[in-house]
Design a protein around this nucleic acid. Structure first.
Lengths: 148, 148
DNA sequence: CTGACTGCAAAATCTTTGCAAAGAC
DNA sequence: GTCTTTGCAAAGATTTTGCAGTCAG
């Protein structure tokens, strides 16, 4: 895993390359994702940053804008929950898919080489130039199976 | 493939079982999905029904309510496009996944036994009781690759 | 008849945008 | 200084809800 300072440099380079500016808000959002394992909604990130840094100047719009920027540049990635919005995580890890518990919302990550390969083959078979793929398995996690 | 009258009976039975009523609006939405191959947004279904049956009494809320009902009962299924809403199709077909063109929006369906099996195995490995799964491959379809 | 269903418009969610002030370089 | 970024509040987009009238059984 990358250290924070390396990640930060990478981010600064990215900004410079695109003539974008390095701001406190952008850094805090990046730092938040780095320091917190897991998947967060823009709202959650906003609230937690406000709580951690009560004096910070930060608007929800900036969180959305920054997350979009991070995702577009491949630093973060998101899972979509339809109308219920998206959750973001640092996207530096190796590509992976998700198991999502429909009762408690727990998200488990996994990676399966067989599936990845088949996806490539399928795209090729349909003459599709694959840009991305997502897979979600919805179900009940071990803990929640007991409660039902 | 099921004939419409069989499907209709199935739907009526479902309604009866749940003490729900069989209405013209519900029937037209079901019929629309049956007669139209493809994936439609609630808005599209609403507009097209209004156009086909100008005298119909139908509100967009009813389309949403009915689609939710159809999906919950397994008669229809949906693909989510994040903020851009959902698209619905009759869910009677064998389970399948989707290739989606990021340029023109074309949706291609596919089914792959290998992937299905691996999904089962993965769920089992994580002690997950699988309820559903979705897989989307995003990319450029053959036609759109030429335009780029 | 009775309870479910409907359309409408208002409300709710999540996200984006316009704009003037603030900040990075 | 210049040009991007920010926060705010307003606007958008999609979906849901409250309610009084309507309809199925």
């Amino acid at each position: 895993m990358v250290t924070y300072s390396v990640l930060l440099e990478q981010f600064k380079t990215l900004l410079k390359t695109n003539q974008l500016k390095f701001t406190k808000q952008r850094e805090l959002i990046l730092k938040f994702l780095y320091e917190n394992e897991g998947h967060f909604t823009p709202e959650e990130i906003y609230m937690m940053l406000k709580q951690t840094y009560p004096d910070i100047n930060l608007g929800i719009a900036t969180v959305y804008r920054t997350l979009t920027l991070l995702e577009d540049s491949g630093i973060a990635s998101s899972i979509s929950f339809g109308t219920q919005g998206k959750k973001y995580e640092l996207g530096l890890k190796k590509h992976h898919d998700h198991l999502i518990c429909s009762r408690c919302g727990t998200i488990i990550e996994f990676f399966d080489e067989t599936i990845e390969q088949r996806q490539e083959e399928i795209a090729k078979a349909f003459d599709f130039k694959m840009q991305d793929h997502t897979m979600k398995i919805i179900g009940l996690c071990q803990a929640c199976q007991q409660h039902t």
